[in-house]
């Protein structure tokens, strides 16, 4: 009961309420499209953050799983007529399985070389899909047949349903993160991120923990891939395995607050809103503006606030509430 009255709970409930009624109020396609992008990329960020943020395994190849999810569901849909809802889960499983050999290779490396190896895996997959002309349409890609309003095939005429799917995915990702953060797994992940050898010394099976979190992260990222191609009705290797997806997954977490529950969400809101504003001021003609601004934000965050901007908000909150500094008790929450 006490918990239901806590400011955190009330805040969360209010936020959920706002997010649920939002599509009823906002009717502009442009605005709702931005909301969907924010939810989607926040979700991808959350998936990345589980491994990259908590365990500090700084992957720059999550596009691999995004693409595998996208292709699995699309191939199942177009070649076999299977609903993308099922394809979505299948894509998740494919990504999970793919993460095993990829992890086996990449986890031999630490730090920057891990990041480089993950870039290589995503690139290899993209190059392979460029070659698979027979069952994956090669470089030309394919449009996804528009069946009109068929919820069972994850196709809708209005934008609101897409919005709710993305919202549900993000809620799922946050719930998983919340659970993991508070369990032994969360402690093990952070310990590995801090010092893998020291973690091993206190009984943490680091390879196994990393493998498991990589599977979860890959699974979730793949869901986003399926959703994205269903939303834009098009797939090609360059969209599905785009390096920018890998980058944005990591970027939003770092800007918001790496290894925190809400960091990726804050980061995505900030970056996507910035990019939307830039677009409406400058038009979409000027390629490069968005990433220029992103990279400037990233550099500033790294130099001045490497723990991410979430901290700025929590500090401000503490300052306003004038609460005594929260005791960082590990499991009080």
């Amino acid at each position: 009961m006490q918990r239901l009255c806590s400011p955190a709970f009330i805040g969360l409930a209010a936020l959920a309420g706002v997010l649920i009624v939002l599509p009823l109020v906002v009717t502009s396609h442009f605005a709702i499209d931005i909301c969907i992008r924010i939810l989607l990329f926040a979700f991808i960020g959350v998936a990345w953050n589980l491994m990259g943020g908590y365990a500090k395994q700084l992957s720059l190849g999550h596009a691999a799983y995004f693409g595998l999810g996208a292709y699995t569901s699309t191939i199942m849909q177009i070649k076999f007529g299977i609903s993308p809802w099922i394809g979505m889960l299948a894509g998740g499983v494919v990504a999970m399985l793919a993460s095993l050999p990829i992890g086996a290779v990449c986890f031999r490396l630490r730090g920057p070389y891990f990041a480089i190896a993950t870039i290589a895996t995503a690139q290899v997959l993209m190059l392979l899909f460029l070659k698979f002309r027979d069952f994956a349409w090669g470089a030309e890609g394919t449009t996804i047949p528009n069946l009109g309003n068929t919820p069972l095939m994850m196709q809708f005429e209005a934008k609101a349903p897409y919005y709710y799917i993305a919202l549900a995915m993000l809620a799922l990702g946050l719930a998983i993160t919340y659970r993991i953060e508070r369990s032994w797994m969360g402690f093990y992940l952070v310990a590995i991120g801090e010092d893998e050898d020291a973690a091993e010394a206190v009984g943490v099976n680091a390879p196994q923990v990393k493998r498991n979190i990589y599977m979860i992260s890959a699974f979730l990222t793949a869901l986003a891939g399926t959703f994205y191609v269903q939303y834009i009705y098009f797939i090609d290797p360059n969209t599905a395995f785009n390096f920018n997806i890998s980058v944005e997954a990591a970027l939003v977490s770092i800007v918001g607050g790496i290894g925190t529950l809400w960091g990726p969400v804050i980061g995505t809101v900030l970056l996507e809103v910035t990019s939307a504003l830039l677009q409406s001021w400058l038009g979409s003609g000027l390629g490069g503006v968005q990433l220029t601004v992103y990279s400037l934000i990233l550099i500033s965050v790294i130099l001045w606030r490497p723990t991410g901007l979430l901290g700025v908000f929590t500090d401000a909150y503490k300052w306003i509430v004038r609460a005594p500094p929260a005791r960082e008790a590990a499991i009080d929450g």
């Binding site: 700084l58 920057p112 980058v247 503006v289 550099i299």
Partner: peptide, 28 residues
């Protein structure tokens, strides 16, 4: 110099961000 000794994340992402920046400024 400002990120030396701060661990992997700042070190990787500083030069990575720089790469993005230079590429996109060149594009502009």
């Amino acid at each position: 110099r400002r990120v030396l000794g701060l661990g992997d994340m700042p070190q990787i992402f500083l030069t990575f961000a720089l790469s993005l920046l230079l590429m996109n400024v060149a594009l502009l």
